[in-house]
């Protein structure tokens, strides 16, 4: 006889499968993201798109945005463990696809004290015109310095500039100290 646990597991698999299918999700990774995983996921996706005869320029944009997003997660996830929360303090990375876009979504834990800064950064970038984005990128490249973790402060600007699309985000408050921050980027198909 099957144990209820086993049935739940199988049901969860079927549910996951259906959900992935319905939302056009091609890849989900949940766990700690590091550099070697970044390279593996980017190479895997690049190969998948090439095999599907996706346009070379679109493939390159997806590859580019993926690496920036994944390296952001390597560098910027705040909490690694939060005992009070339902969600384990890992990162999530997802690629999905609809008729007109590839969608790259990341989720990570953010200290609530940092939320405002992130919100302002993304909102400001979203408000920029194409010319303003270029100017901000050039300014940061010339005048910015490397962060402790080796970032150049160019990731979000670069993604916005390369995709020509606005970021969407969602903040899920988990505790008094931390939130789960979800960021979505669209790459328009040709």
């Amino acid at each position: 006889m099957e144990s209820p646990e086993k049935i739940n597991h199988m049901e969860a698999v079927v549910l996951t499968y259906k959900m992935m299918h319905n939302y056009g999700i091609k890849l989900i990774y949940e766990g700690e993201i590091n550099q070697s995983l970044t390279k593996v996921l980017a190479a895997l996706t690049e190969k998948k798109l090439e095999d599907g005869n996706e346009d070379a320029a679109v493939t390159r944009k997806v590859y580019h945005v993926m690496i920036e997003c994944l390296q952001n997660l390597c560098k910027h996830s705040d909490a690694k463990k939060d005992d009070n929360s339902e969600i384990v303090a890992n990162e999530i990375f997802m690629i999905s696809e609809d008729k007109s876009n590839y969608v790259i979504t990341t989720g990570n834990m953010v200290n609530n004290s940092n939320l405002e800064k992130i919100r302002v950064t993304i909102d400001t970038i979203n408000s920029f015109s194409k010319e303003e984005l270029k100017a901000a990128y050039v300014k940061q490249m010339k005048e910015g310095s490397y962060s402790e973790k080796g970032g150049a402060g160019l990731g979000f600007l670069d993604i916005a500039k390369k995709t020509g699309n606005k970021f969407e985000y969602h903040i899920e408050r988990l505790t008094n100290d931390s939130s789960f921050f979800v960021l979505k980027t669209n790459i328009t198909k040709i």
Binding site: Y63, H64, M141, Y146, G151, A152, L154, L157, D158
Partner: peptide
């Protein structure tokens, strides 16, 4: 072929 944003600053 490709460089990330951290490398783009070094190229400059």
């Amino acid at each position: 072929d490709y460089f990330n944003t951290a490398s783009s600053k070094i190229i400059l």
